[in-house]
């Protein structure tokens, strides 16, 4: 009886043909099926330059924005809602928001050690790309805008909310003031928090990326505001910031109350 005898019979060859044929045809059909199924992303080249207008259609004046109140507007896509806040201190005096260099991926500024007096500085880890947060605009350089889709797993307003300085978030540990001067953007879904005063940098885990910042332009003469771009990480859930249906050259800004009345639809 002896060793292994390998014999490739004609029947084996037929078997091979069948297997190879099935694999070849199935393989060849994978590409057509996936190409057919994958949605056609229309990708624009440039960010639109959109004038912010009120719900009555008139241009929004920067000086009309109430301090420490949340406003919402879509940009750069019709389905990407953003937060617009005129940041202020506890007494509703506008605060100037500085320019800042932020990492695309970061450790939370506040960890458990903070409660016991830990570090509060933004650390830029090595080998991580950074971007420039442009800082506040408007007469007091206090107006900022961030994308309103949580970078952790995509929760949106009202799960993701702005809490003014001094007010309490629903965070169980709830440090009295975890953000710096400008309150906190807090996500109720899994407890992530961002610091609006420092470019929506990550304050609390589990999120790892800051909120993308909407680049605003303030026209000193007319007091009008324009949204002109997005910096920071890619908007959560989007292949790219410009992949989808773009907003037009005017976008409507709604106050929190108006937004709730409209059932979130614009």
């Amino acid at each position: 009886m002896g060793g292994v005898r390998f014999k490739f019979t004609r029947r084996d060859f037929i078997r091979f043909l069948l297997a190879a044929g099935v694999a070849g045809v199935a393989g060849s059909y994978v590409v057509p099926t996936t190409t057919y199924l994958s949605p056609r992303v229309t990708q624009a080249e440039e960010y639109p330059r959109s004038l912010l207008v009120k719900s009555n259609g008139e241009p929004l004046k920067a000086s009309e924005l109430q301090v420490n109140k949340l406003y919402l507007f879509p940009y750069p896509l019709k389905d990407t809602m953003n937060f617009l806040i005129n940041l202020g201190d506890e007494n509703d005096n506008p605060v100037e928001i500085p320019e800042l260099e932020l990492p695309l991926v970061m450790e939370p500024i506040v960890d458990i050690s903070y409660i016991m007096g830990g570090s509060k500085e933004i650390e830029i880890p090595e080998n991580v790309q950074t971007y420039k947060f442009p800082g506040g605009v408007g007469p007091n350089k206090s107006i900022v805008a961030f994308n309103g889709i949580c970078q952790h797993l995509g929760c949106i307003y009202p799960q993701l909310q702005y809490t003014r300085p001094g007010e309490k978030t629903s965070l169980p540990t709830n440090p009295p003031e975890i953000g710096e001067n400008g309150g906190v953007i807090f996500c109720r879904c899994h407890g992530s928090a961002y610091d609006p005063y420092r470019g929506a940098a990550v304050l609390l885990e589990p999120v790892l990326k800051p909120l993308p910042a909407i680049v605003l332009e303030w026209d000193q003469e007319t007091d009008q505001l324009y949204a002109v771009g997005v910096v920071g990480p890619v908007i959560f859930g989007k292949q790219c910031n410009l992949c989808g249906e773009l907003v037009g050259d005017k976008v409507t800004v709604l106050s929190e109350d108006e937004y709730k009345q409209q059932g979130g639809a614009i």
């Binding site: 004609r10 060859f13 043909l17 044929g21 045809v25 060849s28 590409v31 057509p32």
Partner: peptide, 19 residues
């Protein structure tokens, strides 16, 4: 066997072109 091999060649060629 020969006919089957020809079929297999057609499959490979068509799959390549299709992609």
């Amino acid at each position: 066997l020969i006919m089957g091999t020809i079929y297999l060649v057609i499959i490979l060629a068509s799959g390549f072109l299709l992609a």
